[in-house]
Design a protein around this nucleic acid. Structure first.
Ligand SMILES: [Mn+2]
Ligand SMILES: [Mn+2]
Ligand SMILES: [Mn+2]
Ligand SMILES: [Mn+2]
Lengths: 233, 233
DNA sequence: TATAAATGTTAGAGTAGTCTAACAAATTTT
DNA sequence: AAAATTTGTTAGACTACTCTAACATTTATA
């Protein structure tokens, strides 16, 4: 049985590796920043997690999860996303409110609880942010890779998820008139600053590159060749 | 914002005072036993809670909650019982399983969550053990006082709640064929050891005094005079 | 009321998790 | 390849919560 803190370290490590699969492992500073602690603190915890055989770590080396550590981390992500779905679907929370509460709920220890919750929600595949929910067996589908920022001028796509989960960003997304499953047409793209002009539900608006990089999209299959962008894993 | 630990101290203090309202306050050993810590540990925490103005406490004196402390404790009890109700009603947990998980869930910090949960459950009055659920305003009805052990020979009553919330006891209650709202007729009572012979749904069984002291009942109103057993407040 | 028993407090210490400051190793730049 | 920068570790300290052992106070008993 791990502590809240230990669980959060594992979760952060998984999140870091999922966000950038070409990388072989995380760094101490990176992990510390993700958890909002100081690097010295992370070093201490890494020693502890190594002794529990949950992370592969050696001095000055790259950090990665062991198979056991990854499995544990996936379970936490599963709980997080199921709780987010519960709050959204059953308790009418908005998509920008669910994350904060799920950060607490993800640490509740009860296998039965999470199994029953999954059943109660009728085995959802996606959370309110469009992220895939790992199955009870610990299978975590590869997340979406293409962002709105990568869509070519004139092309259409569908919004499937968000990268940034902060309430500020999510509220802004709603304000711009966007949401999961919306169809987006990229009307134009400024070459100077990559400002995008997009059309959603007949409404035209402009979004920054930073914004566009946090919107995951899929493009119609026939529009795209089997892309080499989909990395191994 | 209080820690899990601080919340548990407040909750224990409220539980102790609710269980025995004639007493003016709790003792250090009693509180420590309730929390399964050593008395020295409790003393330390009492100093801290006193400094936060949540308990009235002075060296070697009786311990009681301040108005603010009691309010906080009632909120925790409310969360605990709402979560128990959720697990029981929505996730098909049995009544002996809910308590353990609710011990964790009661510490989740989100006013919106508990309000929405209350609404989702349609403002339940009682938890799966028959205990009253405090309202959003912090009103906590006086619990039942009469136990099966006090019911006279030949008299009938209705089971309304259990005192002991342990899984072992609750499973035993089910095994004996008892449950909330069952009508119980006390057929006889041994004068030597107070062994009770009871009839429930046409089935006759024997229960010990210890068992009977953990079953709360109400007797038909006309059978009882306005009892002086119902203490002030 | 004196003594014994029960109850409660203090002092000192340990663990988990965090920090700052100083240092060491690895990487990048020149 | 040397210097500068970035990255990571160690040492020492602090807080929250817990314990044991010794001591103090209160209550019960003789
Ligand atoms: Mn989230
Ligand atoms: Mn999410
Ligand atoms: Mn309970
Ligand atoms: Mn209960």
């Amino acid at each position: 049985m791990l502590s809240f803190t230990e669980e959060n370290y594992l979760k952060s490590l998984l999140q870091i590796t999922l966000e950038n699969e070409e990388k072989n492992g995380a760094g101490t500073n990176e992990l510390a920043a993700h958890l909002k602690v100081k690097p010295a603190t992370a070093t201490d915890m890494l020693k502890k997690l190594k002794s529990k055989k949950l992370v592969d770590y050696k001095k000055y080396g790259k950090i990665s999860l062991t198979v056991a550590g990854r499995k544990y981390a996936v379970e936490i992500i599963r709980k997080h996303r199921l709780w987010e779905t519960f709050l959204y679907k059953k308790l009418s929370f908005t998509w920008d409110e669910v994350h904060e509460v799920a950060e607490q709920l993800e640490h509740i220890q009860s296998q039965k609880l999470i199994d029953r919750l999954d059943e109660f929600l009728e085995y959802p595949e996606f959370d309110p942010h469009g992220d895939t929910i790992p199955t009870a067996k610990g299978e975590l589908k590869i997340s979406f890779k293409k962002t709105l920022a990568e869509v070519a001028d004139g092309q259409s796509c569908k919004m499937v998820a968000v990268k940034d989960n902060s309430a500020d960003f999510l509220k802004y997304v709603v304000k711009v008139g966007l949401g999961i499953n919306n169809n987006i047409k990229v009307l134009s793209k400024e070459s100077y600053d990559s400002l995008l002009t997009i059309e959603v539900n007949g409404v035209v608006s402009s979004v920054s590159q930073k914004f566009a990089q946090n919107i995951f999209v899929v493009c119609p299959p026939d529009t795209m060749k089997p892309t080499s962008k989909t990395k191994k894993r």
